Simulated scan of single mutants.
Amino acid sequence: MSSSGENDAISLADLSATHRDLLWVLSQTGSSESGPLHHALSDYYTDGIDQTRVYNILKELIERDLVTTQTHDTTKYRLTESARRALSARQSWQAASPNAEGGNE
């Protein structure tokens, strides 16, 4: 039986690329409403992305404790500390991967 701690780190490996892209956008923008997040992803994906899909992804990320909300006049989304650590771990993994951009093939 393991205890809570470093071994319980959240991995992004089981998320879709769209989920990870949304986390990346939030890491770059900070706290944001769903509209700007939708626009950022629409600009990135050549076929665009439906706003309902963005909202559903946000709900899934909240359920996984990767995103949290703040509601005053509007709802803003932000990364949790777990998401920040998971993104950092993924970036380290990508940088160390031999198939990473700029790496040896």
Rank of each mutant, 00 (worst) to 15 (best):
M1C: 06
M1V: 08
M1Y: 10
S2A: 07
S2V: 08
S3P: 02
S4L: 14
G5Y: 07
G5L: 03
E6I: 14
D8F: 02
A9C: 01
I10P: 03
I10H: 03
S11E: 12
S11I: 03
S11A: 05
L12R: 04
A13W: 08
A13M: 08
L15Y: 08
S16K: 08
S16L: 06
A17R: 13
T18W: 06
H19K: 06
D21I: 00
D21W: 11
D21Q: 12
D21Y: 02
D21T: 07
D21P: 00
L22D: 00
L23M: 00
L23C: 00
V25S: 01
S27T: 00
T29K: 15
T29P: 00
S32G: 06
E33G: 12
E33S: 06
G35L: 04
P36G: 05
H38S: 09
H38E: 02
S42T: 11
Y44D: 13
Y45E: 02
T46L: 12
T46G: 03
D47L: 08
D47M: 01
G48W: 04
I49M: 05
I49H: 02
I49E: 03
I49F: 00
Q51V: 03
Q51R: 07
T52Q: 10
T52C: 00
T52W: 05
R53P: 01
R53E: 09
R53A: 12
R53N: 05
V54K: 07
V54R: 02
Y55Q: 11
Y55D: 08
N56D: 11
L58A: 08
L58I: 04
L58W: 12
K59L: 07
E63F: 09
E63R: 13
R64T: 11
D65K: 07
L66V: 06
L66C: 04
Q70C: 08
T71N: 11
H72M: 08
T75W: 07
T75R: 12
K76G: 03
Y77V: 00
R78A: 08
L79A: 01
L79V: 07
L79W: 04
E81A: 13
S82Q: 15
S82T: 15
S82A: 15
A83R: 13
R85F: 14
A86S: 14
A86N: 11
S88A: 14
S88G: 09
S88V: 06
A89P: 01
A89H: 12
R90G: 09
Q91I: 10
Q91H: 11
S92R: 15
W93T: 09
W93C: 02
Q94Y: 15
Q94P: 07
Q94I: 15
A95R: 14
A95E: 10
A95W: 13
A96I: 09
S97L: 03
S97E: 11
P98V: 10
P98N: 01
N99R: 09
A100I: 08
A100G: 13
E101C: 09
E101T: 15
E101N: 12
E101R: 09
G102T: 15
G102W: 06
G102P: 06
G103N: 09
G103E: 06
N104G: 12
E105N: 11
